[in-house]
Amino acid sequence: MRLTKLSIIIPVYNEAATVLEILNKIKSVQLIHNIKKEFVIVDDGSQDASKQLVHHFINENPTLDIQYHEHEENQGKGASIQTGISNATGEFLIIQDADLEYNPAEYNVLLQPILDDVADVVYGSRFLKKEKKRTSYFWHYNANKFLTFLSNIFSGLKLTDMETCYKLLNSEIVKKIQLSEKRFGFEPEVTAKLARIKGIRVKEVSISYESRRYNEGKKIGWKDGVRAIYCIVKYGLFRMN
């Protein structure tokens, strides 16, 4: 497949402290092979200044390819991603949180396996190899490792980081998947459903990661971990039957 445009899906919920910085970081990235960027921004009912800041960015950058969508009420990250997927027009898409934990400068690292025609889906792994990174909370790190291990049992994949935000997906493939999880259950659900597709090629590449703290706005909690286990089992069992 010839890749001409990458859709960058950006869920936003109360990210006034970082949303402008992440949008400018995305703007500054030069994609290899002159691949174009499409911003697909989805505000999920923000109650802070996020909306105003996003509109300021849009107004200041009239030449950029930007879609803006808004949920009147907060529905969850998964719901925002679903809105983004349904509206993306690029041949591939990537999910970009509006915080600063993941670095857009690494898009080209994720794109390379696609351009080399060795993958249909690329996950950016925070754990593939050890590098200097701002580490997660102890429980968060180990919960991610456990959830990935459990996901691998049900999916048959050999991932090191199922919960990563950086998932580079073939748009045609993911648009055909019926997704239902509205919150952080998106990660195990999409992984399980991708694994069902016969012949799909899933590859991981190593990425950097700068974990933020709860006082900096981190939103995921233990209830989301419990839901992830439920989703892994629920969607994984369909594959095993």
Rank of each mutant, 00 (worst) to 15 (best):
K175Q: 15
Y107T: 08
K176Q: 15
D120H: 07
L179N: 05
L64T: 04
L169P: 00
R2S: 11
V29P: 08
D43T: 08
V54H: 00
S206D: 12
K198Q: 12
F39T: 00
V40A: 11
N59G: 10
D224I: 13
Q112Y: 15
G221A: 05
T191F: 00
I41K: 09
F138E: 02
R126H: 05
L23G: 08
K167T: 04
N61S: 02
I85E: 11
I207V: 14
N34L: 07
I32C: 10
A88W: 11
D65M: 02
Y166I: 03
L110Q: 11
N152Q: 01
E70M: 08
Q47C: 08
N108I: 13
S180I: 11
L168H: 03
L115Q: 05
A17M: 12
D161N: 13
I114N: 00
E106Q: 14
S206T: 08
L93Y: 03
K36L: 15
K182M: 08
T4Q: 14
L168I: 10
T18D: 00
V19I: 14
P188N: 03
T135W: 10
L169E: 02
G45T: 07
W222P: 03
Q67F: 10
H71S: 00
F138W: 03
E73H: 03
L93Q: 03
L53Q: 15
E60K: 14
V54M: 00
V205K: 13
S28Y: 06
L147H: 07
K27F: 02
D43P: 08
I229M: 13
H56S: 06
F138M: 01
L159T: 06
R196W: 12
K167N: 06
V122I: 15
V42H: 06
A17Y: 12
I200H: 09
I66W: 04
A17F: 12
Q67L: 11
D65S: 14
R183A: 11
E172P: 09
I58M: 13
Q47L: 15
D224A: 13
E101V: 05
L157I: 01
Y102A: 08
L147Y: 09
P113F: 04
V121K: 06
G78Y: 00
Q178Y: 09
S151L: 08
T191I: 05
L53S: 09
L179S: 05
P113Y: 02
Y13Q: 06
K132C: 00
A119M: 05
I85S: 09
S208K: 03
E204P: 04
E163D: 10
Q75M: 10
G217V: 04
I220P: 04
K234G: 02
F92W: 12
N215Q: 09
I41N: 06
A17R: 14
Q52P: 01
P62Y: 02
K36M: 14
A105Q: 13
Y141E: 15
L157K: 06
I114S: 04
N144Y: 14
F154T: 09
G45D: 07
K133N: 11
I26T: 08
N87H: 13
E216W: 09
G124T: 06
A79R: 09
M1R: 11
E210I: 07
V118M: 01
I26A: 07
K223C: 07
N74G: 02
V233S: 04
K193Y: 00
E204Y: 01
L31T: 10
R213I: 14
E38S: 06
Y123C: 05
R213F: 13
T191H: 04
T4P: 01
F39K: 04
Y235F: 14
Q67A: 09
L150N: 03
K5M: 02
